[in-house]
Lab assay of single mutants.
Amino acid sequence: TEYKLVVVGAGGVGKSALTIQLIQNHFVDEYDPTIEDSYRKQVVIDGETCLLDILDTAGQEEYSAMRDQYMRTGEGFLCVFAINNTKSFEDIHQYREQIKRVKDSDDVPMVLVGNKCDLAARTVESRQAQDLARSYGIPYIETSAKTRQGVEDAFYTLVREIRQH
């Protein structure tokens, strides 16, 4: 089974770092803004072998026109913010609204991801993020692309959301 996953969120929150940590098991430290990259990885989730087709997208506003296209083809979405960047957390709402509009559905598989949880300088409390996820009816997972904490959990949870859909 193949799953088309799309990673969305503001610029600099760590979308590529999360994806590369999942696929290649290493942490990319330097920031190089993405336009669009796709990665494929075969994994076993709950005993089922599946192929993850992951689209890593641009957070930069100037590429926002490309969003409709990949939102149409994606089956599930990782909505990523950084726990030390309140603005990126506030941006999640717009991504969710755009996904709902493009998919013409209120019920699209999504996982809210709070990345950079290895950093002490948190400005978005776990509780705020949990409340937001609960209001959307989606899971919330904290990750660190640096330490790998929660990385597999985030992507695998999204696959489970798609399966249950």
Rank of each mutant, 00 (worst) to 15 (best):
H26W: 06
D153R: 11
L112G: 08
G137Y: 13
I141N: 13
T19F: 03
K116G: 15
Y140H: 08
R72T: 05
A65Q: 02
G14R: 00
C117Y: 14
Q98F: 13
Q149L: 12
Y3H: 05
M66L: 06
Q149G: 13
L5W: 06
T157A: 14
E142A: 09
A154L: 15
M71T: 08
H26M: 07
F77C: 02
D153T: 14
L132T: 12
D131H: 12
T143G: 12
S144D: 15
L22A: 14
N115R: 08
V6H: 11
V102L: 07
N84V: 06
G12S: 14
E90H: 00
G9V: 05
F27I: 04
Q149I: 06
V102T: 00
Q42I: 05
A129K: 15
G12P: 15
S38F: 02
Q130W: 10
E152C: 11
L158M: 08
R134E: 09
Y140P: 08
G137Q: 10
T73M: 13
D46T: 05
G14I: 00
I92K: 07
Y156H: 13
T57G: 08
E152M: 12
E62V: 09
I45W: 02
I20V: 01
Y3T: 12
I83R: 07
C79H: 09
I99K: 02
L132P: 12
V43C: 03
Y156A: 14
V102N: 01
I99H: 02
Q98T: 07
T143M: 15
V28N: 07
I54M: 05
V124H: 13
I54E: 01
G150N: 11
D32C: 12
C50L: 04
L18D: 00
V28S: 06
I141V: 06
Y31D: 05
K4G: 02
L132C: 11
G59T: 06
F27V: 08
L55H: 09
R101Q: 07
Y140M: 12
G74V: 10
P109R: 01
L112S: 07
E2V: 03
K103D: 02
E61L: 14
I138M: 10
V124F: 14
Y3C: 07
L22H: 14
E61K: 13
M71R: 14
E61I: 14
I54P: 00
T147S: 12
D106T: 03
G150P: 14
V44A: 04
S135N: 12
D153N: 05
H93P: 08
L51R: 07
A82M: 06
A133R: 10
V44W: 03
E36G: 00
E125N: 09
E2M: 05
S105L: 06
I141L: 10
R67P: 15
Y3E: 01
G12K: 15
Y70Q: 04
Q24P: 01
G12I: 15
D91Y: 09
R72G: 06
K4P: 04
T57F: 13
M71I: 09
Y39E: 01
V159K: 15
G59A: 12
T1P: 06
V80S: 02
H26T: 00
Y31H: 14
P33E: 14
R67A: 12
V7S: 06
K87F: 04
T34D: 07
Q98R: 05
P109N: 04
E61Y: 14
V111S: 08
E125P: 10
A154I: 15
E125G: 10
E161R: 09
I162A: 06
I162K: 01
T157M: 13
V80G: 02
I35M: 04
Y39A: 04
C117D: 13
H93N: 12
F27E: 10
R72M: 00
L18W: 01
P33F: 07
T49F: 04
Q149V: 14
V102H: 07
D29A: 03
C50A: 03
Q94E: 10
Q69F: 02
Q128D: 12
H26R: 00
D118A: 11
D118S: 13
I138E: 05
K116R: 15
Q42M: 00
E90I: 09
V151I: 14
R127C: 12
L158F: 04
E75K: 06
H26G: 13
N84Q: 00
R101L: 08
L78A: 05
V8T: 03
Y63P: 15
Y136L: 12
N25P: 14
E2G: 06
R163G: 08
I92L: 07
T1K: 07
V13K: 10
K15G: 01
A129I: 11
N84L: 05
V124M: 07
S126H: 07
E97F: 08
Y156S: 12
D104H: 02
L52V: 12
I162C: 04
D53F: 02
D118Q: 10
D153Y: 13
P33M: 09
F89Y: 08
K116F: 15
R134G: 12
E75Q: 10
T73R: 06
D37N: 01
G14Y: 00
I45A: 08
E48G: 10
E48I: 01
K41C: 11
S126D: 12
A58H: 13
R122E: 11
L22Q: 14
A154C: 13
